[in-house]
Design a protein around this nucleic acid. Structure first.
Lengths: 204, 204
DNA sequence: GTCTATAAAGGGATAGAC
DNA sequence: GTCTATCCCTTTATAGAC
């Protein structure tokens, strides 16, 4: 077998896996893990039902891969925000913007997915624990940013970890609300951060 | 058949239905509709699997009944808050407190349930529409309270409907966060309402 | 009204041809 | 690598005895 054809095969493999992942992100995010059928994933990806199992061991296998990818992307995004900005306020602004925009590929559905993963109980103990630990890391890092912002006088006083929960809860609640598309609004970072600000912000 | 025995039968019927509903609220709330099995509901209610169908036509039948009950309870709670308090701020405070406390029976799980119902798509078009309309009513009424609070000088300026979305998103996000029990916090109404307040509130 | 046993349906996973 | 057909287990729903 020639070198070129091996690369071509790998290319197909990556493409197919990504097709299935993309379809699954949206479906898992919209309907939840249990309610999503393999056939729906393959339909959306325009592949046959059987082919799914050529690329993933099982439905759970795909799910776990997706969750870990997402959490890592969020952590990378925090890295990015911390590198790009010095001000804690601007760091959280950037994080909020990226989360709600499409620039984080399928950002919304992926965030909903991780909420679901943390929330439900169909995953093996060990797998769940790994995700929970990474999630705790995310919360810790946001709390640290908030604490620095308090020292810098940008944010209100209060337990940084508790404020981090309020902040993340709002972000996630807005993602859900907008995904539902019942009362769609344009989410702006400055409005999301109102509850952390020392002086009331009204701008958009 | 005597009059007394008819009433006794009805009593049993109501009790059994409530047992099943109570079990279902928690399970649907924790695991979602699709992931919850009839056998899990009957196990939790300490009844046999078959008996479920003596009291409900189907899994979906029970689900729809629950959702409608919840939405009506929320609307009643808004009525209650408006009657008990004149200040829009105090009205929202009461609504927030009741939502997060146990005084609204199974309040947390019920709220999560309605979020799920709005969000997913396994319900017949007509049923879904009824729920969506009631939800819109809830959002409208909260927006009206916020608007009155703006006039009274209690809340910040801005589109009342948009502020209502931010408020409800935070409430729902916190419910989810606490239900998950990863980073449990004591939710206080004054902290939830920070993002609506004209002057920053720090108290708990 | 309550239970156990069973039918019927749905969907995850596999086999094997192309 | 891709597809169709099929297996098989799980779960919803029903039947019928007590």
């Amino acid at each position: 077998m020639s070198h070129g054809s091996i690369e071509r095969l790998k290319e197909i493999r990556d493409t197919r896996q990504q097709q299935l992942k993309d379809a699954a992100i949206e479906l898992f995010g919209m309907k939840g893990y249990a309610a999503t059928k393999i056939s729906e994933i393959t339909d959306k990806a325009k592949l046959s039902h059987g082919l799914f199992y050529h690329y993933f061991k099982s439905k759970e296998d795909l799910y776990v891969q997706l969750i870990h990818e997402l959490v890592d992307i969020v952590l990378d995004t925090i890295d990015d925000a911390e590198q790009k900005h010095k001000s804690p306020l601007k760091q959280l602004e950037r994080l909020t913007e990226v989360t709600h925009s499409g620039s984080l590929r399928d950002g919304v559905h992926r965030h909903i997915l991780i909420m679901q993963a943390l929330y439900s109980d169909h995953l093996p103990q060990e797998v769940k624990l790994g995700i929970v630990n990474k999630y705790r890391t995310i919360m810790d890092r946001i709390a640290v940013i908030i604490e620095k912002g308090q020292i810098a006088g940008e944010f209100i006083d209060g337990d940084p970890e508790e404020l981090a929960v309020y902040h993340v809860s709002l972000v996630h609640g807005l993602l859900l609300s907008n995904a539902r598309k019942l009362v769609p609004i344009d989410v702006s970072a400055s409005k999301v951060l109102r509850q952390l600000m020392r002086s009331p912000e009204q701008g958009g």
